[in-house]
Simulated scan of single mutants.
Amino acid sequence: MNIKLQKFLSNAGITSRRKAEEIISKGLVKINGKVASIGDRINPEKDEVIFDGNRIEYQKRRYIIFNKPRGYVTTLKDAHAEKTILDLIKIKERVFPAGRLDKDSEGLLIITNDGDFASRIINPRFEIKKTYYVKINNELRKKDIEKLEGGIAIEGRKTYPAKIEILAENEFNITIHEGRNRIIRKMMSHLGHSVVILRRMSIGGLQLGSLKLGQYRDMTEHEKKIMFESHKDYT
């Protein structure tokens, strides 16, 4: 069966289909020894595809739920990192995180080799809601909640309105749909608080559940259906 080259690269976990077009147009991909072009199709079982000097093997798609512990980074190419999430995820497929959690945060992370799926999880245009449990060093005041629910100017950009569920005077759940780097920590700092615990509990309809820290598992078919329906233009 022949498929588009950019889809093959996405399925292999190299990049999203859109980014695949960029690397193809730069002449970085070869098919059977010849430089590939946009629009080329391949037979994954017969054709040899080379990117960055390495042969790309066709992989089945993996969709993994991972409970990230604190102390591990999600940036896989950080040469200075002592521990990355791939130290804990031992599978043969080449995978990467759909989004990120900073080193000091924990909780739900989706690991996949489907570049298109990952880009839709990350892109705020799809407004996939993410819920976090947060514990701060002092009380979250009523005026803080009002500011969070109205949006706060962080680094020149106003945050999208957040939904707050109070659990205790310094503990709460916050639901947002943007993924700017360390955005919750920056919002808390803006309000005069520091974060003690930050744990992602859900992404869209996908729940962390009882999965223990450092453990991972494949999504069930029901969970995949939930995530795919979160962005109906996914194909």
Rank of each mutant, 00 (worst) to 15 (best):
N2M: 08
N2R: 10
K4N: 13
L5E: 03
F8C: 06
G13P: 01
R17Q: 09
E22M: 02
I24W: 03
V29S: 01
N32I: 07
G33R: 03
G39W: 09
D40V: 05
E45P: 00
K46V: 13
D47R: 07
D52P: 00
R62N: 14
N67K: 05
V73N: 02
T75G: 02
L76R: 11
K77M: 11
D78F: 08
D78Q: 13
A79I: 14
A81G: 00
A81L: 12
I85H: 00
K92E: 15
K92L: 04
A98C: 01
G107D: 01
T112F: 10
T112D: 03
N113D: 12
F117P: 03
A118S: 13
R120S: 00
R120C: 00
I121L: 12
I122M: 12
N123F: 00
R125F: 06
I128K: 06
Y132N: 10
I136C: 14
N137R: 06
L140I: 15
K143E: 15
E146C: 04
L148G: 05
I152E: 03
G156H: 05
K158S: 04
T159W: 11
I166F: 09
A168D: 15
A168M: 03
N170R: 12
F172G: 04
T175H: 03
E178P: 07
G179K: 06
N181M: 06
I184P: 05
K186N: 07
S189E: 15
H190A: 08
H190M: 03
V196A: 09
M201A: 02
G204H: 05
G205Q: 07
L208W: 12
L211K: 02
G214A: 09
K225L: 12
K225A: 14
I226S: 04
I226M: 01
M227E: 12
S230T: 09
D233L: 13
